[in-house]
Amino acid sequence: MRYHTPSTFEDAARLAASASGLTRFLAGGTDVLVQLRAGMVQPDDLIDLKKISGVDAIERTEDGGWHIGVAVPGIRLGGHADLCADWPGVVEGMELVGSTQIQGRATLVGNLCNGSPAADSVPGLVAAGATVTITGPNGTRTVPVEDIPVSPGKTSLAAGEVVSAITLPPRGSNGGDAYLRFIPRTEMDIAVVGCAVNLRLDGDTITEARVALGAVAPTVVLVPEAADAIIGTTLDDAAIAALVAAAEAACNPITDKRGTVEFRTEVAGVLAKRAARIAYSRAKGENA
């Protein structure tokens, strides 16, 4: 295996495009190294992105959103007060990935590009309407986060393409987001179900909402029906019931070592209800 440390994304993309064998990009390495060591993946070329300038930066964009470098580990997101104030749901999703030690390495983009439907940081990004910038042999393009994973372990990235940045939109006023996941233990598990809710209020009424579910389908899914169930409501009991029904209806899970179809479906509704309540109270400016 050859180890590369390009200094620009263009060089990284060129290296990947010209490689004849199997290529992997390395940021935090918390997925790649596990696969490498288990012998599941034997890359010929490993391209470390951490020497590229700016990959460790968290910056406010001109329009008031956020630009997050591809090598920013989870622990830095949690330590960034302004980012946490804007997008607590996005940050708490990332902070649920693994242990304190994993947080020292794991990144949002790595979590996204690993392609797992159970990735804890992805529902929050999808609900937030985050986008990624992709650098490839033919230049750059920008796509919504939800377009990256296509099936477990697979992404829509073409050969030679590398995610070069992640962008969160401006939070704006009266907004709130939240992410909850269900695991059997209190820490260290892969999500059995995850749910993120992002919403905006006008007074007590929800005017905008996005709901994303994890681990209930081959990819993290955006569920417009769940959002529709609460838009125009004050998150009253009828809205919650409609939200739960929509979340459950959107589930297309499998039974595996981590959970059954029935359990995942039922808990998806429970988490949607609980996450919506947290997002709602955050939008109201209440502590939650």
Partner: peptide
Amino acid sequence: LANPVFLDYRVPVASD
């Protein structure tokens, strides 16, 4: 064996 790692063979962690 479907769970031959500590990720899925779930021994109690400190916060449990």
